[in-house]
Nucleic acid binder design. Structure first.
Lengths: 156, 156
DNA sequence: GCATATGGGACCATCTTAGTCCAATATGCT
DNA sequence: AGCATATTGGACTAAGATGGTCCCATATGC
């Protein structure tokens, strides 16, 4: 149904990774190794995350990235915002011009409401929640999944 | 942030339109005129909606479409499902195969949870809610919006 | 049988996405 | 100072999804 781009997914993984490495700063390389995401992609994502104030960056030798806040202080909503851009759930609702479909669009507000609902849902989830093991969530079972053959992307 | 395709938006408009024309069946042409959406697009959407059991169709002359149920019995979640496909919020969470990133992806479950949260939010909204004016919603406050002039949104 | 409608595609232009790479800048270390 | 290491910002491209149109077969009413 609703879609989140793969980049957002990766970005989240990166944040989760950083959340685990608390104190130290990690270079993009470290992160790439740790997450098994292609380095260039990691670099790109890290930049985005830095601009979005989710991670701090230290330039130069011995530089790297670290979370700008504690995992508890980073919400899923922020993550999505930063990685996905401040896109709204519908398009016409972004511009203040009417939907180009005259005024026969009573839907906008509805999706708007839905949007807000979703947003508040995302607000309740923090990076800390995303980071730590599943045995916290009262969700499904997700039983069958464990180590699998390394199969990563990198289309070169 | 989260995105719903324009088609889904249009599809919703169509449903809202049909919800207003209760008893009668409307031809795709009627709908196109009523909603000001291009006819071919309306036809396409109507087909999708028919396959998704959200509307009933009557073939032949004098044929057309009508809601298959009352607006109260159609949830936003269904609408999104039908129009957007049963896509999940993340990609890897759909297949039970591991994320191709070995087992270092504790994130999937988290997004999964988020997905469920969003879904249940969408379940609470019916087409009837979407159809009629805003002054009905028992959700948040969304107070500051009433008969609104050309001001569709103020991003969040 | 003819006009009107839907059913189920195929089809294409275009926008977005995912991913890579490069030149510039900043910092630590010798 | 000078070199190696890292981030910064951007350009760039290939692939895929999206939005939108059109065509032909089928079904129904008059």
């Amino acid at each position: 149904m609703l879609r989140i781009s793969k980049l957002t997914d990766y970005g989240t993984m990166i944040l989760v990774y950083l959340a685990a490495q608390t104190s130290e700063v990690c270079s993009a390389n470290d992160v790439a190794n740790g997450t098994r995401i292609a380095l260039p992609t990691v670099q790109k994502l890290l930049k985005v995350l830095a601009r979005g104030d989710l991670v701090r960056s230290l330039r130069g030798a011995e530089g790297g990235y670290a979370l700008s806040r504690t995992p508890e202080d980073i919400s899923a909503a922020e993550i999505v915002d930063v990685l996905e851009g401040p896109l709204s759930i519908t398009e016409c609702s972004m511009t203040d011009s009417q939907c180009e479909l005259e005024d026969g669009c009573p839907v906008g507000d509805a999706w708007q409401k839905i949007n807000r609902t979703i947003r508040s849902a995302l607000d309740t989830v923090t990076l800390a929640d995303l980071a730590h093991p599943p045995h916290e969530f009262p969700l499904h079972d997700l039983s069958a999944r464990r180590g699998k053959p390394p199969e990563r992307r990198s289309s070169s």
